[in-house]
């Protein structure tokens, strides 16, 4: 997926998610859950990264 000027992105959000494998779908959902719970909160980046790391280890053991 390029963001440069020359390549148009024509895929929809549903198509992008459908193109992910099941583990990636689970991780995507989990990442957004983690970030959503922390929006507006003053949480350090490293704390969030640690939680994301735990989520990856859980989904891809």
């Amino acid at each position: 997926m390029r963001e440069g000027k020359g390549v148009e992105n024509t895929r929809s959000e549903t198509e992008i998610i459908a193109g992910l494998d099941p583990q990636a779908k689970d991780l995507l959902k989990r990442v957004l859950e983690i970030e959503r719970a922390r929006v507006h909160l003053k949480v350090s980046d490293s704390e969030t990264v640690d939680e994301l790391y735990a989520a990856v280890r859980e989904i891809a053991p």
């Binding site: 963001e3 193109g19 990636a24 990442v31 891809a60």
Partner: peptide, 24 residues
């Protein structure tokens, strides 16, 4: 090997989220 697998997984959702953000 595990790290590589996880790295690929994270890269794939990083790409997907970047595209999703542009769409939204």
């Amino acid at each position: 090997e595990k790290a590589r697998k996880r790295l690929n997984l994270v890269s794939s959702i990083d790409d997907a989220l970047r595209a999703i953000l542009r769409i939204r």
